[in-house]
Design a protein around this nucleic acid. Structure first.
Length: 422
RNA sequence: GGUGAGAUGCCUGAGAGGCCGAAAGGAACAGUUUGCUAAACUGUCGUACGGGUAACUGUACCGAGGGUUCGAAUCCCUCUCUCACCGCCA
């Protein structure tokens, strides 16, 4: 959520930024500024009235004490009149505040200056490419066929016990999952992140603070009987640890990581590209989250990008980094780098990580601030990234490393796996 | 699931219609003293939104929402959450 004061003082810049993000309802800006003006004017007058009422109440108290009942009665009448007036002002104020808020939550975050213009994924900027795309034999198979051949991931079995998009990992497939989770967590710990194990169901207040509610309500699994939501990413619980918190400046940056299963209904998504592991309702992910001082949050974003690069390189997977264009960025992000590994058998790039700086967009809803040296509270910047999501990593590992005598595992994983080949 | 108790500032905790944005203690921060550590003393010490160049100042907030009253942390209603004990249980 953007800050009203910022919008008021930087109207032109806000409009330019939202335009870059391909946001159309620019009329909201002036509506917000207008609401804000009305709000402040009304507040001044209702505050003044309240001040008068408070003063009168105090006088009545004193008059009663000294026994001047008649004088007190006169003042009471006056007080009742003020109360009427205050009541109607407060009602108007409340409706203006609601209007202001409703408009405000519709605005996406402003893009960072380095975000390229553009609307479609094709306009994302490739900023880095690493690794050689392997040359595979003629009869190379996509991962869903390999998974069946080696009996390591069973999609049909998952359909039986739950439904589509809930695969069962078996034998070496299950072991590969566990190895990746441990590997990613160890890498994060080595980079200075503190490992956490948060709940994987959250309440509505948490969903709201990180922006899943109300807009993306239909994307989360909802446990109605207890009014809880299954998390779509560990970002939700990890970031909400700092909801309503005022940190000390020297506590920044806070670096946390967690492995969690993630649940996404993916309502409305379908098509040829969702086979196998490409899109699931339940998957595993290791998330890294930082709560940062705004002064160096972009440096931190670069460090997070380096961290993800390091992992992908240890896994020997060819990848590229995209700086997302304005139109392809998420609602809350100011700058996002997507990581894609190349799936040779499918002949396409698969997104395996998304690493973003949200600046104050989330912290404004979270009310997560830090006390700066001057004693004033200031919103923190929040950043997060996948490091990494498992399914597409597994997909590319299987596809890119297939040989006539099995699927070779990268060196870095062997200690975690206890075998070097599937 | 049953029964009972409770929710006040960073923490503990008093307050039971006006003198309460809130005692006291602790923590934290700054200063003085001290050879260091510790201690002692002094001061600062909630948040949000406004007004004012500023010093300063107004309003709101004692779990949330409503009500009674000239006036509510305090009385009434509803809700939420927490804790304890019992039951069940990994």
């Amino acid at each position: 959520m953007l800050q009203v004061n910022y919008i008021r003082e930087n109207r032109e810049e806000v409009i330019a930024g939202l335009t870059k993000k391909n946001f159309k309802q620019l009329a909201l800006i002036d509506q917000i500024i207008q609401f804000d003006e009305q709000r402040r004017a009304l507040q001044v007058s209702s505050d003044t009235l309240a001040a008068e009422a408070n003063a009168i109440a105090k006088q009545i108290g004193e008059l009663m004490k000294s026994g001047q009942k008649d004088a007190a009665e006169d003042l009471k009448q006056r007080s009742v009149a003020i109360k009427e007036q205050t009541k109607s002002q407060l009602e108007t104020l409340a409706s203006i505040e609601t209007g202001l808020y409703d408009a405000l939550v519709q605005l996406p975050n402003l893009p960072h200056a380095s975000v390229p213009a553009g609307i479609t994924p094709e306009e994302n900027e490739v900023v880095y490419t690493w690794g050689d795309i392997p040359v595979l034999p003629e009869n190379a198979k996509p991962h869903w066929e390999l998974a069946a051949d080696y009996d390591i991931i069973d999609f049909e079995l998952g359909v039986k016990i739950t439904g589509a998009g809930f695969p069962v990992y078996k034998g070496k497939g299950a072991r590969l999952q566990r190895a990746l989770i441990n590997f990613f967590l160890d890498e994060a710990a080595a980079a200075g992140y503190k490992e956490m194990q948060p709940p994987i169901v959250v309440n509505a207040a948490s969903g709201f603070a990180t922006g899943q509610l109300p807009d993306k309500e239909g994307q989360m699994y909802y446990v109605g009987i207890d009014d809880l939501y299954l998390i779509p990413t560990a970002e939700v619980p990890l970031t909400n640890l700092y909801r309503d918190v005022i940190l000390k400046e020297e506590e920044l940056p806070v670096m946390n990581t967690a492995y969690t299963p993630c649940f996404r209904r993916e309502a409305g998504s379908y098509g040829a590209h969702v086979r196998g592991l490409n899109r699931l309702h339940q998957f595993d992910k290791i998330e890294i989250v930082q709560i940062a001082n705004p002064a160096n949050s972009y440096q931190i974003l670069e460090e997070m990008v380096k961290h993800v690069q390091g992992i992908l390189e240890k896994l020997e997977l060819p990848y590229r980094i995209l700086r997302l264009c304005g139109g392809d960025m998420s609602f809350a992000s100011a700058l996002t780098y997507d990581f894609e590994t190349y799936s040779t058998a499918q002949g396409r790039w698969l997104e395996v990580s998304s690493t973003s700086n949200f600046e104050t967009f989330q912290s404004n809803r979270l009310k997560c601030r830090f006390k700066a040296k001057d004693g004033k509270n200031q919103l923190v910047h929040t950043l997060n990234g996948s490091a990494l999501a498992l399914p597409r990593i597994v997909a590319t590992l299987l596809e890119n490393n297939q040989t006539p005598d099995g699927i070779k595992m990268p060196k870095a994983l062997i200690p975690y796996l206890g075998f070097d080949k599937i």
